[in-house]
Nucleic acid binder design. Structure first.
Lengths: 172, 172
DNA sequence: GGTTTTATGTCAGCCATGTTGACCTTAATT
DNA sequence: AATTAAGGTCAACATGGCTGACATAAAACC
């Protein structure tokens, strides 16, 4: 910001810098999801299952509507995945105690185990990257990713991080 | 690294920090690709087309094999997309001058225009995020994303950034 | 010079995951 | 009693991965 450079070169640098970001995002996201994808494939699941499991694990007792709001997909798409997860015993649905139309979602033991395994491999990757890059870099990383979000997402993303008060545990 | 904290809390913080990273990656990637996806949808294209266009634009004269190595998909998947792009006049294939089995890939004028448009929207998003976050943050961002890559990808990603010597322009 | 390897293409079919649209049920709210 | 909200279901379609099988042309090798 402080230095004044010849406009031509500044623009060139800027474009290169931006392209570098675009490419890094592509490669990093691919590799970041790759390991989890392999584990999921063993269980005949895909990324969609992973996302559902992840956010249910993060927000026990979340409603379908709330989950839809996080994932930004149609209820039909989510429904397919949820049915499969209930079928395979990874997710449990409980009728809402106050509003009985709602189905509150919880991970079962199996679901929790899978979630841990998946989060662990992804966590390891982050732990390595964070360790190598150092604390300052991590702050910058988070700051930039925050800035890449749509403004509507910035709300949500914060909410997830702040973690809704979980709606009780399923009585079993 | 330097500070010694009660193990319990340190682990809790660590896990929260890692989950924050995982979630930010998910949301940021989704929003980052969202705008481009809309533009592509207008033209009846998807992300796969975008990736091909992007990397051909970045490496004029790239061979199908090289492109496959970057994208990490099967030749059948790429072939489908490339055929479509040739059909719609976004990409041109030229038989390799030295090895005539190769088809060197180039963007046409139309292809270049689309590439610019797509890179521009994504670039704008990055430019905003970079500007808001500041130079130090950007460095950290790049460092962490680098660290998230598979080691094989680290090579490639560097190569793309360093940009192969382009193989001539198509003679028209 | 004949064999093997490489680059590429093509056809067919499968699967996961997104979409839209239509329609239904149940229950809370007004 | 009527409306709204939560949720499900069915059907159909598109995209973009995948595998497997097979074809062709040319380079490279022995």
């Amino acid at each position: 910001m402080a230095d004044i450079k010849p406009i031509g070169k500044a623009l060139f640098l800027r474009e290169e810098e931006l392209r570098r970001g675009i490419e890094l995002m592509f490669f990093a996201y691919r590799d970041f999801t790759g390991e989890a994808d392999s584990i999921l494939a063993e269980q005949n699941m895909g990324r969609a299952h992973h996302r559902a499991i992840y956010f249910i694990g993060r927000n026990p007792g979340i409603t379908v509507s709330e989950l839809l709001a996080i994932l930004n997909i149609t209820k039909q798409s989510l429904s397919r995945v949820l049915s499969a997860l209930v079928e395979t015993g990874h997710v449990e649905q409980q009728t809402g105690p106050e509003d009985r139309r709602q189905r509150l979602l919880y991970l079962t033991k199996t679901g929790t185990e899978l979630e841990s395994r998946l989060t662990e491999v992804q966590g390891r990757r982050f732990a390595r990257a964070y360790r190598e890059a150092g604390m300052t870099a991590v702050e910058g990383f988070q700051k930039v990713l925050q800035g890449l979000l749509d403004s509507e997402t910035q709300q949500q993303a914060g909410d997830v991080a702040r973690s809704r008060p979980p709606r009780g545990t399923p009585d079993r």
